[in-house]
């Protein structure tokens, strides 16, 4: 029974190795959620124009620092499903407060009134694709990276 040391060393190095991605991420501050500059540039552009926050707000401090909107990254899928049920099943089409104008209607962004909608909401701000491009620039930048292909676009057409 002289192998105790070896076993402990083996176990410890195993644990350190398998958990190393977490430590590395924490140490370097890497944000997995932004696979490429497309998302970064889009977010920077949107914060200046039109300046409205996204469907779920992040803290002002983080926003000022240009940090990613974790609320949206983590919850946008659930939010979309919630919106879908609210609009289609409950007839509730009220947009978030900060998207409303004085009359409680959606503000006009790029010539289009914001709606509680996938194509008439999210994609008004988050540009779809450039002419000639085949991908939805913003959304697909992430989705291609994590290898998912939401089927929403089968019906929710985007010019």
């Amino acid at each position: 029974m002289n192998d105790k040391i070896k076993i402990v060393i083996g176990l410890v190095s195993f644990l350190v190795l398998t958990s190393s991605p977490f430590w590395l991420n924490i140490a370097t501050g890497t944000d997995w959620a932004r696979p490429n500059e497309v998302v970064e540039q889009e977010v920077a552009r949107l914060r200046a124009d039109p300046g409205l926050p996204c469907a779920l707000k992040q803290s002002d401090k983080e926003r000022a620092q240009g940090r990613p909107n974790r609320e949206m990254i983590d919850k946008h899928m659930a939010l979309l499903l919630e919106w879908r049920d609210q609009v289609v099943r409950d007839g509730d089409r009220e947009v978030p407060e900060w998207w409303q104008d004085a009359k409680g209607q959606g503000r006009v962004v790029r010539g289009r009134r914001l709606e509680k909608s996938l194509s008439g909401g999210c994609l008004v701000c988050h540009t779809k694709k450039k002419p000639g491009e085949t991908e939805y620039k913003f959304c697909d930048a992430c989705h291609t990276y994590v290898q998912i292909d939401p089927y929403c676009w089968d019906c929710h057409v985007v010019p």
Binding site: L118, S119, G120, D154, C155, H156, V157, V158, P159
Partner: peptide, 10 residues
């Protein structure tokens, strides 16, 4: 489709 503001079906 003619109306890009309304979803289609599949």
């Amino acid at each position: 489709p003619p109306n890009m503001d309304y979803p289609t079906r599949m």
